[in-house]
Structure formats: C-alpha cells, structure tokens
Simulated assay, not measured.
Amino acid sequence: MSAVVVTGGTRGIGLGMVRALLGKGHRVALCGTDSERVDTVRAELPGTLALTADVTDREQLRALWDAAVEEFGRVDVWINNAGISHDRTPLWQLPEQEARRVVDTNLLGALNGSAVALAGMSAQGGGHVWNMEGLGSDGRTVAGLGTYGASKRAVTYLTTALAKEVPAGVSVGLLSPGMVVTDLLTHGYDDAEELAKARKIFNILADRVETVAPWLAEQAVTRTRNGAHVRWLTTPKIIGRFVSAPLRRRDLFTDQERTR
C-alpha cells in the first residue's frame, strides 16, 4: 500500500480521494487551511494524518512532508489538489486581492508542493507527484474566468516542464477530473437564467465527487509513469454523452438521475 499526501484534502475532490484511498488501505496525509475542517476530517477519518497548512507557504508544506515521513516512513505519491476559483467577472473588475489569492493558491501552491515533494522524493529514492488540471488547462476560455483559467493553464505547462527535469526515480503527471459537482463548478453565477443554462450542460457532462474521486484515486497510485496525463472526461466520453443526452435524464443538483 502507498503513502499518499493530498493538499486541499478537507473538501470536494480532495476529500473524495482521501476517502477512496483510505478505503483501499492506503496511508493518507492531508492538509487544509481551515483548522476547524481539518479537525472535523481527522475525527471522521481515524488514522488520517490531517494538518492545517497553507500551500502558498513552502515552509508549511515542508512541515507537512516531514510529518508524513515521520508517520509513514516515506511518501510515495503527492497530489497537489488545493485550488480555488473566483467570481465570474472580467479581470478589470476583479479585485486585486481576489485575483492574487487564486493565482497564489492554484499556481504557487502547485509550485511549492512540487518543489517540496520532488526534493524529498529525490532524497528517498523515488516517488510521484500529481498536479490537478481544471478549466483552462486545455486552452479553452470562458469569459469571466480568465484568472482561474490562466492559473490552471500554467499548472499544465509547469507539470510538462517538470517531467523533463525530475531527478532519477521520480516522476510527475497531470490528473484531469473533468466537470465535478463541487462549489467550484457553480461558483459565481449571479444570474439565475445564466445558471439554469449552465446546469443543462453540467447535467450532461458533469459527475458527482463520489463517482470521479475513487477513479482518480486509483489512477493516482497505479499510473505513476513520468509525464502521465490521466483524464476522466475524454473526448469520446463527451461525444457519447451529448449523443445520449435526449435519452438520459440527469439532475445532479437534486440527487435525481433516471434513464428513459
């Protein structure tokens, strides 16, 4: 069984992966910035090493690495999952502090986590680092989400570059969860009509955390070749879902799903 660290592991996809990894017998350490949520997860998931840490602070991530190594003996897989979005608004209307917080968390957090994990894995003789993709990673643009998309595009570039410079025995890769029903997916829709239109697409292409996270967790511990790019929502799957949409009624937002 592997020893895995998940940043941003107290909610959403991160928490879903933590649960799935524990269910398969892996040893898991996680971090989050909300100490109350960290305490709650620690209580709900006995055996988990749950610490409060801010991914924008490299020293705090070094402390997370050290705690995981002390607890498990080594870290086999490190997942830079922590990420946040912002209100759907043009860049020139987005407050500077909000833009900075998104870039710092999504990009600087991945930089810091990668630097800490790669150095530690080099010293221990091996390991794998995953960075999490999101909207914008493939170059697709959405009005009002330029800052978030740019941060995720940069994470993809960063990971591709890291694959060319990792030390011997260490590897990196990208996890792409597709559209997952979390607060990030629906965040920032102030117009009810716009949200209703978006939900029609989400009900075709999106999935719940409990569907995607176990699959991602399994890939994270098994597909650890250097440069791996693991995608949940592939092009054939997208085409298939649109083709079958008239026959498949899904409502991911009211816990109802049926096929006719």
Rank of each mutant, 00 (worst) to 15 (best):
Q93Y: 11
E133G: 10
G146Y: 05
A163W: 09
D54E: 03
L49S: 08
G120Y: 01
L135G: 13
E59C: 02
A53S: 08
G125E: 01
D66V: 05
A63V: 07
D39T: 13
V69W: 03
G127V: 01
E70N: 12
G139A: 11
E70W: 02
L94E: 11
N80R: 06
L145M: 08
T52S: 14
L108H: 07
V41W: 00
T159V: 04
T160R: 13
S151D: 13
E70V: 11
L158S: 08
D76A: 07
D54W: 02
L135V: 03
I79Q: 01
V77R: 03
N80E: 07
R74H: 15
N112Q: 09
R153N: 13
E71N: 04
T48W: 00
L111K: 10
A119M: 07
R153M: 14
N80T: 09
S151R: 12
D39L: 14
E59A: 13
G83V: 06
R88A: 09
S85F: 01
D54K: 05
S85H: 05
A82S: 15
A150C: 06
L162T: 05
A117P: 01
Q124S: 14
N112C: 09
E71F: 00
N131C: 13
E71W: 00
V102M: 04
T147L: 11
H128W: 05
S114G: 14
A117D: 03
G83L: 08
K164A: 15
D138N: 13
A123F: 04
G126K: 05
T156D: 12
T141G: 06
A119D: 15
R74I: 07
D54H: 07
D87G: 03
K164G: 12
A161L: 12
A43W: 00
E59T: 09
A154S: 13
Q124M: 07
V103K: 00
A123D: 15
N81M: 08
E165R: 13
T52A: 14
A117W: 00
A63T: 12
